[in-house]
Design a protein around this nucleic acid. Structure first.
Lengths: 320, 320
DNA sequence: ATCGTTTGTGCAATCGATTGCGCAATCGAT
DNA sequence: ATCGATTGCGCAATCGATTGCACAAACGAT
C-alpha cells in the first residue's frame, strides 16, 4: 500500500535524505557503518527508489521507443528481441508504438515520444512516409533517432538495414547457376523500398538468357494465384519471392501443383517455417535479431554523444 | 536543442508558471485572452509539456508493462496489438519485457516495473513459474497485475485466457463425427498449462470407440517425426495438434507422405498460414487480439479502482 | 462610501531523488 | 597549543508541472 521514500528512511534513521541517497549509492563520503545501516533498513522495508524521480532530475527517461508499421511482418518479433536484449543490458526499457502504416499515426507517435522526453527512437517508417520532415521536432528536442528496416535515405539520421540489392544479387547468381530457363520473380507492393531494391538487385544480375517474368503481389493470395497460373503454363519454372509472405503463396501453389517437389525457389525468409515445408528453398536469412541489435547499439551511441553521429549500417546477409 | 518549460513561457509573458499551466489546460480561472495568448506562444515555440513531470506529481506513469516469455510464439504479436490499441486510447504506453521462459528474468522484470512505478502489469508467466509469490511486492506497491494466456489459477489476480478445455472438447466432438478410427494427439511440453488443459478437454470428450495415441512434443521437429512414423503405420490416421508449432510438424509430415491430401487435422492455430497450406485443417482460432484487448480492459479497471477487482475472463473460441 | 462578491493571478509547496556546497568534528603535524 | 587537512554528514536547490490558498482589483449592491 505504502511505498517508502528516501525521506521515510531518513526519518526512521534520523539522518538527512541526502545521507540516505548517498548511502544507497555507496558514496565514499558516507561511513561504512552508516551505509550498511541504511542499506539494511532499505532491504527490510523492501524500499525501491523511484527510478523516474531520479531520471527526472537527470533529465533522462531511460526509455527508447520502437515505432513500426505492424508487428507481425514476419521478422519483426526478432527485431524487437534484438533491440530489447541489447538495451536492457544498458538499463533502458523499450516502448512499442504501432503506426499501422499510416503517416498520421507515425506523426502522432513521434509527438507522444517528444511529450514523454524519450531518450531515443528506433523508427521503421510507414509505407505512406515519403519524407522525414516530421522528425525535425525530435532534433530540436535532442531526441536521437535511428531508422531501421524500412528506411528513407537521409544524411540526417543513422540507418540500419540489410543490403537489399546485394542480397537480391546473390539470389540471381544462384539461379544463374541452376538448370532452369524460366523464372518468375514476385515482389511485394510496388512502393516499398524493399520491393524496389530487391527488384533492382535481382534484375541487374539475372542472366539475360533466362526468361524473367515479374509480378507485384499485394499479399500471399495474389502471389499464390499468380504462381499457380505460371506453374500451369510451365511446370519447369523457378521462383524468386522477396518476403516470407510472398513465398508462402508460391510454396502453396507448388505444393498443390507440383508433385515432383523439385521446383527451385529462392527469396528472403526468416527461415522459421518455409524451408521446413519446401526443401528446395534457398533463402536470404533476414536476420531481425542482428538488425535490432545493431540499431540498438547505434541509438546508444547517439544518446551518449552530444552531436549524434550519423552512420549507415548495412547488415551483411547470405544465402542459405 | 533547448526544450522549453512552463517557466520559460511564464518569463516571456511575464506571468507566473501557474498561470501558464492553467492556461494550457483551459482552466476556467484564467481569462480567455490570457489563455489564447499563452496557447499561441506555446504553439509558436512548439512547446511540449513534459508529461513525466506532470505524471510524477500525480504519482502515476501512464505506463503498462507487458511481460511475456517470448515474442514469436505465433499469436503474441496479435496480443500486443490488441493491448496497445486499447491502452493508447486511454493514453497509456506499453513497455515490453521478455523473460525467455526463465523465472529469474521474470522476477527481474517485475522488480524493474516496481522501480519504475509502472501503473500496471500484464503478465504471461514463464514455464518455470510454479507460484506467484514474486508478485507480492507489486501488491504492496499498489501495482495492478492481470495474468493472460499462460496463467496460474489464483484468487489474487485477474486472469484472461481462452477456455482450453472447452476448446479442446470442440476439437474432440468434431473428430467424433468424422469417419476415422485412429487419432494421434500431439501436445506441447508436458508442464505447460495449455498442454494439460487441452489434453484434459480432448481426452474427456473423444469417443471411446476411437483409438487414441498421445505424444508430447518439445518442438515442431519432434511433432514431425512422430507424425511421420504414425502415417507410415497407418495412412488413414487423423491428427490433433495443440499449437501452430505442433501443427507445422504434423502438416509437413502429411505433405510429404500423404498424396491424397485428405488427412483430417484439427487443433489450435492463429489461422495465418497453416489453413492456407492444408485444406483439411479445422482449427480453434486462437485470437490474440481479443485476449490482449480484454486483458487491457481489465488492467484499466484495476488501475481505476482502489481495491483491484479480480475477474477471471475466459475468451470464447470456436472451431473454424 | 462601505461592504460582499466575483474574477484573474501569483505564491509556494509538492512529487522523490540527487548534488554542490558548507560546516562541524576529528586527527595529525609542527 | 595552533593550524590545516580530512572525514562524515546536512542544508537547500533542482528537475517541470500542478494546485490549494491567498490576495488584489473590479464591480455591484445597499
Amino acid at each position: 500500500m505504502k511505498t517508502w521514500t528516501i525521506k521515510d528512511l531518513a526519518q526512521i534513521l534520523t539522518v538527512s535524505p541526502s545521507t540516505v541517497s548517498r548511502a544507497l549509492n555507496n558514496h565514499p563520503d558516507i561511513s561504512i557503518e552508516m551505509r550498511s545501516k541504511v542499506q539494511q533498513l532499505a532491504e527490510e522495508l523492501q524500499f525501491k527508489p523511484n527510478s523516474f524521480a531520479a531520471n527526472f532530475r537527470k533529465k533522462q527517461t531511460k526509455l527508447i521507443a520502437i515505432i513500426l508499421p505492424k508487428i507481425y511482418h514476419s521478422f519483426i518479433p526478432d527485431v524487437i528481441e534484438g533491440i530489447t536484449k541489447k538495451l536492457n543490458t544498458e538499463h533502458f526499457q523499450t516502448l512499442i508504438l504501432i503506426t499501422e502504416d499510416q503517416l498520421e499515426k507515425e506523426i502522432e507517435a513521434i509527438k507522444q515520444c517528444c511529450d514523454m522526453r524519450i531518450d531515443g527512437i528506433l523508427l521503421s517508417i510507414s509505407n505512406q512516409t515519403k519524407n522525414l520532415n516530421h522528425l525535425e521536432i525530435c532534433k530540436k528536442m535532442g531526441i536521437s533517432i535511428v531508422l531501421f528496416d524500412n528506411i528513407l535515405e537521409t544524411e540526417d539520421f543513422s540507418t540500419v538495414h540489410i543490403d537489399d540489392i546485394q542480397a537480391a544479387k546473390q539470389c540471381a547468381m544462384y539461379l544463374n547457376q541452376q538448370n532452369c530457363d524460366q523464372i518468375v520473380a514476385i515482389y511485394g507492393p510496388e512502393e516499398l523500398s524493399i520491393s524496389k531494391n530487391r527488384q533492382l538487385g535481382f534484375k541487374a544480375n539475372i542472366s539475360p538468357q533466362k526468361n524473367l517474368i515479374e509480378f507485384f503481389a499485394q499479399d500471399a493470395h495474389e502471389a499464390y494465384h499468380f504462381s499457380e497460373q505460371q506453374i500451369k503454363r510451365n511446370p519447369q519454372i523457378a521462383f524468386f519471392g522477396i518476403t516470407d509472405e510472398v513465398l508462402h503463396g508460391i510454396i502453396k501453389a507448388i505444393k498443390e501443383n507440383d508433385l515432383s517437389k523439385n521446383t527451385l525457389v529462392v527469396g528472403f525468409s526468416d527461415g522459421l517455417l518455409l524451408p521446413f515445408l519446401h526443401k528446395e528453398l534457398r533463402f536470404i536469412f533476414h536476420n531481425g535479431k542482428s538488425i535490432g541489435s545493431r540499431a540498438a547499439e547505434q541509438i546508444l551511441k547517439c544518446i551518449d554523444e552530444k552531436v549524434p553521429p550519423v552512420a549507415h549500417i548495412e547488415i551483411p546477409v547470405k544465402l542459405h
